[in-house]
Design a protein around this nucleic acid. Structure first.
Lengths: 371, 371
DNA sequence: TTGTAAGCGTTATCAT
DNA sequence: ATGATAACGCTTACAA
């Protein structure tokens, strides 16, 4: 007969108490302790009280790790985002958290930094940790190795702001197509014929949807799209990408009369570029951005935005995940939640300057700024 | 003799393979599998190869849950923040993640929504999940029940942007005292005598440090502080708190000539209030805010800010936690990392209007706005 | 060098 | 109604 750790020992050392300690203190067996905490009907009231007070005395809480060993779900959801240092992430994670907390889940977060290697490492790690599901904003949708990794995952995956793939068919995203379509249409109706589109997302749904909306608006108006005005970047460009792109666009011989800088971090660059070159919004250049912000609202003039709720996006992703978790059938059907977008017209949009419409060579020549 | 799950079964069903499956496939014992994956020196090269390929065939990864059961650290760090839907959270979590990932840890996040009950529930949950540590931005530093809960936690806690408490003596925070001191001094030097301080944090270090810096600057200049100009809020006020407070301050008979709105979310309210009442910055009112942002930088005029890196704050908290985790002595000494602040002077600060200095009753009377 | 078996903290099955 | 015990997947001391 071996000497076992007793509740006495547990109380003396700082060691975490176990059900065995509780059982010893209450003078019952571990099975009974388990029955009490799990609310089994078949427990004598007196025994229940003894156990309950022993639990309180020792401050015992069942080990979730041990419960997981027994096959219980970990109730942990992974969340992989290209860049946690992004205000959009804040509201998305909050939306997801609000939904998942209510259902008893917790979120584990990881930043991929846009690297596929890291995405795969994180998926693998979540697997080892037995996560129950994953909300994933993949960097490159078409990356085969990452897709393979997703396909092998033993948990459901919801794509956030990305398209479903063969490996993960459930997705939540904003309706960038409609938003961009409306905004582009509005600019065209104002008389713009040379509209620039600046956006991230070469290899993901967001960029594709924006481009599609942009093209459709042009097509419906019978206007050809000048591809030099379409600047869709791949990957996480530097912080001053918006600035450099705008400067480049404005330096073209036949510069755009309107720029749609779609992505919250791009607006700053556009405004700085305009300020430096003394370009007036909207007289010289109309501006549209996406993701409403204090800056867009309070800039002088206020900037028109394609607005949508990233909080709702996070909620939607979480809800889709819960649906899949609840579904008895593991191979659930493809599904998608689309969050509506709204074009908010502000003072930054006006008719193009007359000389541009008349085909004047270069507005900047007329309006040289002192650097 | 019972029939055991074999590698065959594991490959046929979708069940996660175990070390036993690997062992069976490789024709070795589970102990050997463990030795191989843990890089034990004493393994025959041929055996190692057989095991390695069996692992690859089955796609086996050791279960972290089972490893935890054996006493291995979970390498999970909790992170409790009052409001995940806050851009500051993004950069803090990113800073922490960068440090912790390198050390093999993952982050579990939870939003307390400013509720002490939820804070305690989360701490408790992290305990049950056997988290190795916690980074915590408590809502009310002095809350006794939460402190007790912290004291009972079996893992080290680092306070983020909060003071150490008896229950958790390690903390990381920005040097709000210096930042506020400098900014206030500058306003005083410009001639301001009635400066308003608007900030959150009635019961935390941030608010206290700001108030202390504010007071010290006044004291050193021999100026009395008018307490009606000091508006330090408790808890997470509504989104329009900055607006309402500014409107209230400007409506006072002896309105301030400068306002320090310390908190990123407050600037918008100040700017809106000024716009609505046709108050010019800085001619009528000087403005200082905290936390640099695109809005502060690009507002017209640009707004002076007390700047500091929330990313560094997250890093610092994580590094302190790693220090504690590495320390053999569990009862480590109190320690604190202070992140420097910097007062960035922009166009929003100027000398107070003449009539205010002459003691004119109400600037608004001279400058009535249409609405 | 490799196999065997105990044990981590639960839960569930089977006796009593 | 309650106790004893096997099992979850892994690591490790000990045996061979």
């Amino acid at each position: 007969m071996t000497f076992k750790t007793s509740s006495l020992a547990a109380r003396e050392t700082g060691a975490r108490p176990t059900a065995r300690d509780v059982a010893a203190l209450a003078g019952v067996s571990v099975g009974t302790v388990s029955r009490v905490v799990n609310g089994a009907a078949t427990v004598n009231a007196q025994v229940r009280d003894r156990v309950t007070s022993a639990i309180a005395t020792l401050g015992w809480r069942p080990s979730i790790v041990a419960q997981n060993m027994r096959g219980r779900a970990t109730r942990m959801i992974g969340f992989i985002f290209p860049d946690l240092d992004n205000p959009l992430f804040s509201s998305m994670i909050k939306g997801a958290e609000d939904v998942l907390t209510r259902a008893g889940y917790m979120l584990i977060v990881g930043s991929s930094n846009g690297q596929s290697e890291r995405e795969m490492a994180l998926i693998d790690l979540f697997g080892q940790r037995q996560a129950d599901g994953l909300i994933f904003t993949i960097e490159q949708e078409s990356h085969p190795a990452v897709q393979k990794c997703m396909a092998q995952a033993r948990f459901p995956i919801v794509m956030l702001e990305r398209d479903g793939t063969p490996a993960a068919t459930v997705s939540a995203g904003a309706d960038h197509f409609q938003g961009t379509l409306q905004a582009t249409r509005h600019l065209i109706e104002l008389g713009h014929r040379r509209i620039a589109l600046v956006s991230g997302g070469r290899d993901n749904r967001v960029g594709r949807a924006r481009l599609a909306g942009f093209r459709q608006a042009h097509e419906q108006a019978g206007i050809a799209v000048d591809d030099t005005l379409v600047q869709i970047d791949s990957g996480t460009a530097g912080n001053d990408w918006g600035l450099r792109k705008t400067q480049w666009l404005l330096a073209q011989a036949d510069a755009p009369t309107a720029v749609m800088a779609l992505g919250r971090h791009l607006l700053k660059g556009v405004l700085v570029a305009c300020k430096r070159q003394n370009i007036r919004i909207p007289q010289d250049l109309s501006v549209v951005t996406s993701n409403d912000s204090d800056l867009a609202e309070l800039a002088e003039p206020a900037i028109s935005v394609i607005r949508y709720s990233t909080y709702d996006l996070g909620r939607a992703a979480a809800e889709l995940l819960l649906d899949q978790l609840a579904a008895a059938d593991p191979a659930s059907a493809p599904s998608r939640t689309e969050i509506p977008t709204e074009f908010v017209l502000r003072a930054s949009c006006a008719a193009p300057p007359v000389h541009a419409r008349a085909g004047a060579p270069d507005r900047l020549a007329t309006n040289t700024s002192p650097r």
